[in-house]
Design a binder for these strands. Structure first.
Lengths: 405, 405
DNA sequence: CGCAAATAATTCAATCGCTGAACAAATAGC
DNA sequence: GCTATTTGTTCAGCGATTGAATTATTTGCG
């Protein structure tokens, strides 16, 4: 916590009030906010006025009806306020989307193509084309973009360099430098780079947090694709680790005397619950399926009662459960979200995961652990990326207000 | 983050300034603090005056010498300010200590006795005797006690009830209720209970954080005793999990097809790197050694070149390394501290732990993980308990100042 | 030795944002 | 149409920070 200057007071209260408006189930009145926060109605009015003139908040016309007295005017996040641009590079598709302050997806494009043969520079050039279309669409809807975030299936350092994205074949790719020619993804505003690069699993977890007001404050979001990544959300904020490389769950040993893994260990989770492992166990050659349909195909087979598929899923679920139990023991989380390719497979993965948790988590007897599929599907990472931009504005509105003024 | 009222400004700045004084390497001057925090020298002077009249800070007479100009007056945490009382119940000893604001241990008593035959009530009665002596000693030194914390080798819920302490044989022990007759451990002040009960591993980790200014902001502290517990410190704060039950590292599977464990799983870490497992592997019957000397005995044997001991330690270190690698992958930590019974064994445990980390942690190649023994020895938990009390004051001085006024 | 330069800390009027109470606005119920 | 009730705004007052000026204390230099 930095020092609190005179002006910080208003900055902090702008964040507090806007945060309450964003988190509220129904549009709160100024009086509600005053009661909730402990601030005076006078102060709340002044703060709200700043937020309204800054186009972050609008008054909801159909005010919620009460008993007697002057009717309250509900406050909601502005639909025409700043929006976030989300981008994603993945193994077999590119995606872009625009999410407004209220969390609505206002634009969404997916471009399917095998990215592996392309150089990183070429892939990014194609991505810029998508970004430009998204920008144009946003402008047509009167939405100013406040920033962008790019989701990548790999490890990203603070500078935005992709250190390693195995399934993409990327290694030490300096994304910001490669985008240098493509303003306005590169103009730095207020010290915030206009494009943040982050791990796909992290951003997908943020997407889940953003998807509904019912999201718990702390949970583990597991993205099951070729690799297995986890996004850790603690108290409503993404936990990134010392260098931003948290969530590497794929190499927790679940059968240490088991199959060798490319990481050098043995019996890693990825070798038992990764997409390739499940497909192989189910008797499906991986090569003839595009990655995005593999999970749905498996779900169809399981639905149809295929013994091979059911056995493969049970096996994978058990391995996943061993790893999840370890994480729950370590972090004492009460919710686990199955995302990415696991989402459609949740009906079959859930039982063995729960079984392992109740076997191995000492505290599960006192307070049960919830395991549920992700609310967002395969779009979680892009939507989460765009959401992370608007979320930053909600968490610190004075930055945007100063820029807009 | 709650709303910020007018008066919160000063409260926040008191915390900011006191925090800087506590964290500084050498006594900072008011001017230093102003430069660091961005506050005006005028404001810092006012804030510091509050801290000095509240007996939290004093001026260090031998001011650090500079070039020219009026010499600065260094500010340090007051040695005669509020102190914390730390208590510990463990399998074969009770302990109490008093730590002052500056982190110095001003009192320390250990009472050795096998606690397992005693009822929880009897054990706590003996503990109160220690606490009373510590109080008297503190009073004799002019130290007002600001609160107490009790370390227990088990799971504790929010109300202070020990839900399960297997090695102590405790189950659902309502510690605050059992201490009800023993004021002043029970009078609630400012909404803060005078006695906080917490897990031993958590408090030991806090002790490590408190032990030196060189402690990293985020680390994993592993307490190896009969069970294996971990304290997770993230950004200088203990991470407790949703219900305060984080850090159960003992049941991470390291040999899943291996030995059955009392938790119901197989091949848990505890069965390979727990004290009993190491002693058995080294050919030492456990029964004939008091728990506190087992580790030193092992260290002696290893020092003397005993093959059995060296092999046992290598085996345990490898198992520990597998689990630690999993945690490091998940949380992206850069420091692991070997505490409790592991501290004296660190020379032999470190190499296999590091080997497993470099094998299994993908990112270890870019930035190495430090593994080191704990700075505090077996006293870490008591000292950490007392430290947690003074730490709370440093984090929120206005609470103490209001009480003292 | 005396004086200028430099750095530390304090004083004080000005200012910014919150507070609390009074007031205006708008509606339901009688 | 009147009253009770609740919402939202206005305004004087106040607390905390600010910034410039002032005082305090030492080093360096002639």
């Amino acid at each position: 916590m930095g020092a609190v200057r005179q002006g910080s007071l208003r900055e902090l209260n702008l964040a507090v009030v806007l945060g309450r408006i964003a988190a509220a189930e129904r549009p709160p009145s100024r009086a509600d906010l005053a009661a909730e926060t402990g601030l005076t109605r006078a102060t709340v009015s002044a703060v709200v006025e700043d937020l309204i003139t800054g186009r972050l908040v609008t008054e909801a016309e159909p005010a919620p009806r009460a008993g007697a007295g002057r009717p309250a005017r509900g406050l909601v996040l502005a639909g025409d306020g700043p929006a976030g641009l989300g981008l994603e590079v993945n193994v077999d598709y590119l995606a872009a989307c625009v999410v407004d302050l209220a969390g609505r997806v206002r634009h969404h494009t997916v471009h399917r193509a095998d990215l592996r043969p392309l150089s990183p520079a070429d892939a990014l050039t194609r991505l810029v084309a998508l970004a430009v279309r998204a920008r144009t669409d946003a402008a047509a809807q009167g939405l100013p973009l406040a920033g962008a975030a790019l989701a990548v299936p790999g490890l990203v350092d603070d500078a935005g360099t992709v250190r390693l994205a195995p399934n993409l074949g990327w290694r030490d790719v300096p994304v910001p430098a490669l985008l240098a020619g493509h303003a306005p993804l590169t103009e730095r505003v207020d010290g915030v780079p206009p494009l943040v690069v982050d791990n796909e699993a992290n951003l997908a977890a943020l997407g889940e947090l953003h998807a509904g007001p019912a999201a718990p404050a702390s949970f583990l979001h597991i993205t099951g694709e070729v690799g297995i990544g986890a996004g850790i959300v603690l108290d409503g904020a993404l936990f990134r680790g010392t260098r931003g490389w948290s969530g590497e769950i794929g190499h927790i040993p679940v059968r240490p005397e088991g199959r060798p893994c490319r990481c050098g260990g043995r019996g890693c989770l990825e070798r038992y619950a990764g997409q390739e492992a499940i497909l192989a166990a189910a008797g499906l050659a991986e090569a003839d399926l595009p990655a995005d349909t593999a999970a749905t195909r498996l779900a169809e087979l399981a639905e149809a009662g295929s013994t091979a598929a059911l056995d493969a899923l049970h096996e994978a679920g058990t391995a996943l459960g061993v790893a999840v139990a370890a994480v729950v023991n370590l972090l004492d989380l009460d919710t686990v979200v199955l995302g990415g390719g696991y989402a459609p497979l949740a009906p079959w993965l859930r039982p063995p995961v729960l079984a392992e948790i109740s076997r191995r988590v000492l505290t599960a007897a006192w307070s049960p652990v919830t395991v549920r599929p992700a609310a967002l599907g395969a779009d979680a990472a892009v939507v989460g990326a765009a959401g992370s931009v608007v979320r930053r504005i909600i968490a610190w509105p004075s930055g945007w207000l100063a820029r807009a003024a």
